[in-house]
């Protein structure tokens, strides 16, 4: 078996393990789906009248507007909980066992990320299903759905990289867990929940340049109106950028950890 094929097997095995972990540790997986779903329900009920405001984009309903934000939120939480799981592995010494195995070191991280991407794809399907159940039309139809699932999986992968980097750097689950509120800070400073033109300053100005706004707009356009070339490109570029940051920082953190001897 070639080295590459061996690595792939390791990645897929570790990916399956990370998905099993997500399912078997309800305290990790529950917040990931339940939290964004509850927030979605509360926000659509509480701020639903916002669609009547002057300057609100043309949408079918507030729920239609909010779906993209909920998916993005779930991706960030998935990245965070993947990081927590990795940190727990480090605390328990499981990672050391993998590092001692004759496999490419980065496949340890890639395995975890593969699992996170799968979880991301699942959240996309979950929220699209919620939309369909409550009568939200997906403007771009089946093609749009496929595009969204792929984009959400890629986003989860990117955030998984960042979560893994923090886990590898700190080696402590509590540190990664502590980032939870930070996720909401960044989200609230994007157009995930509300259009930028109706947000208050200074958040509105930050949202204009927040890469998360680009990601969420790229996810939102095919739901509420139509594919837009520039929006899709900006989304892809943002995801690519976030992914690159996650990749490089976790590679560095992994090297640091190996150098320090665990």
């Amino acid at each position: 078996m070639s080295a590459f094929a061996a690595d792939l097997r390791v990645i897929s095995e570790l990916g399956r393990r990370s998905i099993r972990q997500t399912i078997r540790r309800p305290q990790l997986s529950a917040p990931l789906i339940i939290f964004p779903t509850l927030l979605l329900a509360i926000q659509t009920g509480g701020a639903g009248r916002a669609v009547q405001l002057d300057g609100f984009p043309q949408v079918d309903s507030f729920l239609q507007f909010m779906l993209a934000g909920a998916m993005l939120q779930a991706c960030m939480l998935a990245g965070n909980s993947g990081g927590i799981a990795l940190a727990i592995d480090i605390e328990m010494g499981f990672t050391d066992r993998l590092l001692a195995a004759p496999i490419s070191r980065f496949s340890i991280v890639l395995g975890r990320l593969a699992g996170t991407a799968m979880v991301g794809a699942f959240t996309a399907i979950w929220f699209l299903a919620i939309g369909l159940i409550f009568g939200v039309p997906i403007s771009e139809g089946v093609l749009g759905v496929i595009w969204i699932i792929a984009l959400v999986a890629a986003t989860a992968l990117a955030f998984g990289g960042i979560g893994a980097a923090i886990a590898l750097r700190s080696g402590k689950a509590s540190v990664v867990q502590g980032l939870f509120p930070l996720i909401f800070v960044i989200l609230f400073l994007s157009t995930a929940f509300f259009p930028a033109n109706l947000m208050l300053a200074p958040a509105a100005d930050i949202a204009e340049y927040n890469p998360l706004s680009f990601v969420v707009e790229g996810l939102r356009e095919p739901i509420v109106s139509a594919f837009s070339g520039p929006d899709s490109l900006k989304a892809l570029a943002s995801i690519g950028g976030l992914g690159a940051i996650g990749f490089v920082t976790s590679a560095l953190a992994l090297r640091g950890r190996v150098k320090r001897g665990g």
Partner: peptide, 26 residues
């Protein structure tokens, strides 16, 4: 250990008011 729990409501407060502040125009 207590910091995230202590700060979370403030963070949510700042987030919710920034994002949904436009609702007062209704």
């Amino acid at each position: 250990a207590a910091i995230p729990g202590v700060l979370a409501p403030t963070i949510f407060f700042l987030g919710i008011t920034s994002a949904f502040g436009g609702l007062t125009l209704l």
